Simulated assay, not measured.
Amino acid sequence: MLPTSRDAEHPATEPVAATGTLIGYARVSTKAQLLDRQMHALTEAGCVRIFADKKSGKNAEREELWKALDYLRPGDILVVPSMDRLGRSIQDLIALVSGLRQREVGFTSLHESLDTTTPGGRLVFHVFAALAEFIRELIVQGTHEGLDAARARGVRLGRPAAMTPEQIRHARDLLTRPENTVVSIAKLLGVSRNTVYKYVPELKDGRPALAAATAPALPHPAEPCP
């Protein structure tokens, strides 16, 4: 079971008793890339079994990683060539390693010489977790400040309008001609039929209502001279 966000923000502090097996995990981003170097490093580190994915780190469906996590038992150590092979982001990495520690499974990254079964490794990992939370709070704060400043300048936030005022006027003009259907007008303007109905609400009451709404007002007849 994956840890919650609260668990990821506060990794377990108790040491893991590394008494089991070294299990390796390797990953390359594309099928054209080779796993040889990573597999060799993991074998040299003493891994007795290695799982490997050929998928981008942005892809959440890493089948071999989930198999590796399911294979691990308390006391085992998950070994990776480098931290970026395991996590899609620093938050993802922290969540995965925190989940391992809750299961009493250790974690080692060969390139960074990070080993969570040692006091120094646990300290470094806590620093990573604290930095990730600090950066996340800065991003949230900056986003809110940017939105507030935009609102103060009168910037319209949210999704842009599907039809411009010019398109709406053009649609109204076309709709006054009986030979033009709503579907054909929508295709001409590059929008959906529902969008035309949304921006020309008079259509819901029929073409006559639209014609009456768009017809220019007639001038009052001149008063006869006395």
Results as ranks from 00 to 15, higher is better:
residue 166 E to S: 10
residue 166 E to G: 12
residue 167 Q to E: 13
residue 167 Q to A: 11
residue 168 I to R: 13
residue 168 I to L: 14
residue 169 R to F: 03
residue 169 R to Y: 04
residue 169 R to I: 00
residue 169 R to L: 09
residue 170 H to M: 09
residue 170 H to Q: 15
residue 170 H to V: 01
residue 170 H to Y: 11
residue 170 H to C: 08
residue 171 A to M: 00
residue 171 A to N: 07
residue 172 R to G: 11
residue 172 R to W: 08
residue 173 D to E: 14
residue 173 D to V: 03
residue 174 L to W: 13
residue 175 L to R: 00
residue 175 L to D: 00
residue 176 T to Q: 14
residue 176 T to H: 12
residue 176 T to V: 07
residue 177 R to D: 15
residue 177 R to Y: 14
residue 177 R to S: 10
residue 178 P to D: 12
residue 178 P to Q: 06
residue 178 P to V: 06
residue 178 P to C: 07
residue 178 P to Y: 13
residue 179 E to F: 00
residue 180 N to G: 12
residue 182 V to L: 08
residue 182 V to P: 00
residue 183 V to M: 03
residue 183 V to W: 08
residue 183 V to P: 00
residue 184 S to N: 13
residue 184 S to P: 01
residue 184 S to K: 14
residue 184 S to T: 14
residue 184 S to M: 11
residue 184 S to G: 11
residue 185 I to S: 01
residue 185 I to D: 02
residue 185 I to G: 02
residue 185 I to A: 07
residue 185 I to Y: 07
residue 186 A to C: 08
residue 186 A to H: 10
residue 187 K to D: 15
residue 187 K to W: 01
residue 188 L to Q: 13
residue 188 L to P: 00
residue 188 L to W: 04
residue 189 L to H: 08
residue 189 L to K: 05
residue 189 L to D: 09
residue 189 L to E: 04
residue 189 L to S: 08
residue 190 G to D: 11
residue 190 G to K: 09
residue 191 V to T: 09
residue 192 S to Y: 00
residue 192 S to D: 14
residue 192 S to E: 09
residue 193 R to S: 11
residue 193 R to C: 01
residue 193 R to N: 14
residue 193 R to E: 14
residue 194 N to E: 14
residue 194 N to W: 12
residue 194 N to D: 15
residue 195 T to Y: 06
residue 195 T to M: 02
residue 195 T to W: 05
residue 196 V to T: 07
residue 196 V to K: 05
residue 196 V to N: 10
residue 197 Y to W: 13
residue 198 K to C: 01
residue 198 K to P: 00
residue 198 K to T: 14
residue 198 K to I: 09
residue 199 Y to L: 06
residue 199 Y to M: 06
residue 199 Y to C: 07
residue 199 Y to D: 02
residue 200 V to D: 03
residue 200 V to G: 14
residue 200 V to Y: 09
residue 200 V to K: 02
residue 200 V to L: 05
residue 201 P to C: 05
residue 202 E to Q: 15
residue 202 E to N: 08
residue 202 E to R: 02
residue 203 L to R: 02
residue 203 L to E: 01
residue 203 L to G: 10
residue 203 L to W: 05
residue 204 K to D: 07
residue 204 K to I: 13
residue 204 K to L: 11
residue 205 D to G: 00
residue 205 D to L: 12
residue 205 D to Q: 14
residue 205 D to R: 12
residue 206 G to F: 03
residue 206 G to Q: 03
residue 207 R to H: 11
residue 207 R to D: 02
residue 207 R to C: 04
residue 208 P to Q: 08
residue 208 P to Y: 03
residue 208 P to M: 01
residue 209 A to W: 09
residue 209 A to N: 08
residue 209 A to V: 10
residue 209 A to I: 03
residue 209 A to H: 12
residue 209 A to Y: 02
residue 209 A to P: 02
residue 210 L to H: 11
residue 210 L to R: 05
residue 210 L to F: 05
residue 211 A to T: 12
residue 211 A to F: 03
residue 211 A to L: 15
residue 213 A to Y: 04
residue 213 A to F: 09
residue 214 T to K: 04
residue 215 A to E: 10
residue 215 A to M: 13
residue 215 A to S: 15
residue 216 P to W: 07
residue 216 P to C: 02
residue 217 A to W: 01
residue 217 A to G: 08
residue 217 A to M: 06
residue 217 A to N: 06
residue 217 A to K: 14
residue 217 A to D: 04
residue 217 A to P: 01
residue 218 L to N: 02
residue 218 L to W: 03
residue 218 L to I: 13
residue 218 L to H: 06
residue 219 P to M: 01
residue 219 P to A: 11
residue 220 H to N: 09
residue 220 H to G: 10
residue 221 P to A: 12
residue 221 P to F: 07
residue 221 P to H: 01
